[in-house]
Amino acid sequence: MPSVLLTESLALELGDRTGNSIPAHEPWPQDVKLFQPYEVEQILLPDNANCLAVQTFLKMCGLDFEVEQRSNAEYMSPSGRVPFIKCGAFLIAELDPIISFVNNKGISLSDKMDNAQKADMRAYMSLVNTVLANAELYITWCDKTTLQEVTKPRFGSVLPWPLNHVIVWQKRSQVVKKLGVLGWAHKTLDEVYQEVENCCNALSVRLGNQPYFFGDRPTELDALVFGHLFTILTTPLPNNRFASIVRGYSNLIDLCKLVEKEYFERTAES
């Protein structure tokens, strides 16, 4: 069985997707910044979920960072998607690359797990990334009421006329294209809710009575699930059925409360 380590170390030597190579075991610098869009007036549901997941992951690792809010964070990002972190000379965007970047510093949330658990964790992260993330994109960009009442005003809030119409339209066609190739664009709203329901059910069954997905310690999966579920629960939308589906699973709600208490209230106090 070939190990992933080989390809990963090779990728390290050759430089990763952003064109940076990462020196191993250099300490975490002090001035790490996480860039994201404005949380109050601009950010949309899918982006907010991803940003919150990365923030949670970094907090779970005990790494310091500062959140920088920029209206053009999306265009500053090397991959065109938010959030991204600036760590020394490196820019790394999105959760997966950030996780492998942090792992290369010798910090990992899942190092005590066996290989089978790591495999399961990857599979569940895929489940969240495909189902919840695509459902969020669908609701934000394909549902007509949400698009008119929430997405357009918020996304266009930082842009002058006529760009606030042009860029929204451009972004929408991009998202619809992506959902189209993934087989989501032709779904009806009810089918999307059904997918979300199935996904939450799978997550809830897997979580069972444990505090976190893999026992007493949080993992990358917990950060990702918290990022998505907490955002879904707290974002006001014209149709709140999305949130009410999640509310139907009490152990998932408990997970969200636990992570919020452990990692967000404590830092707010100190």
């Binding site: 599979a123 569940y124 895929s126 199935n198 996904c199 799978a202 897997r206």
Partner: peptide
């Protein structure tokens, strides 16, 4: 079991995504 069904759903999405 229910847990195995959940695992099956997760791995199916993994295949589709990657």
């Amino acid at each position: 079991t229910q847990k195995q069904c959940a695992d099956a759903a997760a791995y199916t999405q993994l295949l589709k995504e990657k």
